[in-house]
Nucleic acid binder design. Structure first.
Length: 260
DNA sequence: GCCACCGGTGGC
DNA sequence: GCCACCGGTGGC
């Protein structure tokens, strides 16, 4: 047990756990637990691990001392998830949510950049972090067969992608490409332009995991303007629907008050 | 300057 | 009272 690094199945491949028994001092006999990233970086607390792994690994149930996932805390988290804003305690969607919330923000965890202008401050950067984030190729396939449905359990229609986008990789379906593009748009700060021509010939070797698995494409100014119009139109429709709903609610409210 | 190691303490 | 977390430092 002492001073031996062992594999830790609860963490991504390559991570090691070490338990060191204290030999002297008041705390002799007690032990310290350390973890080592695949590159050898040492971690001595759970917050430190969480900071490093970010959203790539869910450590909420991870027990730092044992190195295992605990099932006890799982229930607490599930209960809390049901009480998120926008959902009432009965589990049905709460249509009275006051503030509009960008729903995708909670699905795709995004890093927060802290900018400090104080001259004395040192900003620590972790170059290893980015290179050690595990990235799976063709992860879109895992979502195959899953469809989103609305509040009445009705399956929602998938979005239509512009024609001309050519999927490359093991799954040529439009759904997979849609998921990949949506994810890339949320996770990448750079432009989304598809794969290089070499990835077309051998996707398993040359696929760039930061880009969706489709043939390289360009977006014209005209297409951007067209899309702006579509978005504006949808916003107008939403505005009309919301104000109609608001008026109907008001009318209903005054009717009830008159009855009393 | 680095880091293994132990002490101190805040939160439970 | 326990212990997770992190500060501090002695030894290299």
């Amino acid at each position: 047990m002492e001073k031996r690094r062992t594999d830790c199945p609860a963490l991504p491949a390559g991570w090691k756990k070490e338990e060191v028994i204290r030999k002297s001092g008041l705390s002799a006999g007690k032990s310290d637990v350390y973890y080592y990233s695949p590159s050898g970086k040492k971690f001595r607390s759970k917050p430190q691990l969480v900071r490093f792994l970010g959203s790539s690994v869910d450590l909420s149930c991870f027990d730092f001392r044992t190195g295992k996932m605990t099932s006890g805390k799982l229930h607490k988290n599930k209960q809390r998830a049901r009480h998120e804003p926008g959902v009432s305690k009965s589990g049905k969607p709460d249509l009275n949510t006051a503030l509009p919330i960008r729903q995708t923000a909670s699905i795709f965890k995004q890093p927060v950049t802290k900018v400090t202008s104080h001259p004395g401050n040192k900003v620590k950067s972790d170059q290893q972090r980015a290179s050690e984030q595990p990235r799976q190729l063709f992860w879109e396939k895992r979502l195959k067969g899953l469809r989103s449905s609305d509040v009445s359990q009705e399956q929602m229609r998938s979005m239509d992608l512009p024609t001309g986008l050519q999927c490359i990789g093991p799954d040529p379906s439009q759904d997979c490409l849609l998921w990949a593009i949506a994810s890339a748009l949320h996770l990448s700060s750079g432009p989304i332009s598809g794969q290089s021509s070499s990835a077309e010939k051998n996707p398993a070797v040359w696929t760039n995991s930061n880009q969706p698995p489709c043939r390289g494409f360009t977006v014209s100014e005209q297409q951007i303007r067209d899309q702006e119009q579509v978005v504006n139109q949808v916003r107008r429709s939403l505005e009309e629907a919301l104000s109609a709903d608001f008026m109907a609610r008001n009318a209903e409210h005054t009717k009830v008050r008159k009855k009393r």
